[in-house]
């Protein structure tokens, strides 16, 4: 029997995992965010913006479904969260793979 406490634990764990992954969420770094600050400061700004954007959306998504009580419904939403997790991991992997491929395998056919 699945209790509410179990579900609560699962949801929190899933939220934390997604939040952890959000630290790498990309933001268009090519834009000079502030003309006066240094390259490094811009990079930090870009990092925090990507993360902030991600966190706000993630939080809103979980908040929207916070009132759910039906176990089946919660499980369905958790499945969706797992799907987002897989998609994010794939996004990050492809980003890295393409960067390395472009640098070292450009002339491969």
């Amino acid at each position: 029997m699945v209790t509410g406490e179990d579900m609560r634990f699962k949801v929190i764990r899933q939220y934390k995992q997604l939040l952890f992954m959000g630290r790498e969420y990309p933001y268009a770094v090519s834009i000079q965010l502030s003309a006066r600050s240094s390259v490094l400061a811009n990079r930090i700004l870009a990092f925090s913006r990507g993360y902030r954007y991600f966190r706000e959306n993630l939080h809103a998504g979980f908040k929207k479904n916070a009132g759910l009580t039906n176990v089946k419904e919660i499980e369905q939403k958790l499945k969706f969260a797992e799907y987002i997790e897989r998609e994010l991991a794939a996004l990050y992997y492809v980003r890295k793979y393409r960067a390395v491929k472009q640098r070292y395998y450009e002339n491969d056919n």
């Binding site: 764990r13 934390k16 995992q17 952890f20 992954m21 994010l88 991991a89 990050y92 992997y93 793979y97 390395v100 491929k101 070292y104 395998y105």
Partner: peptide, 13 residues
């Protein structure tokens, strides 16, 4: 080489 496998994304746990 690059195409040997696709590394997994680390879980927080």
């Amino acid at each position: 080489d690059l195409r040997l496998n696709t590394p997994r994304y680390t879980k927080l746990q």
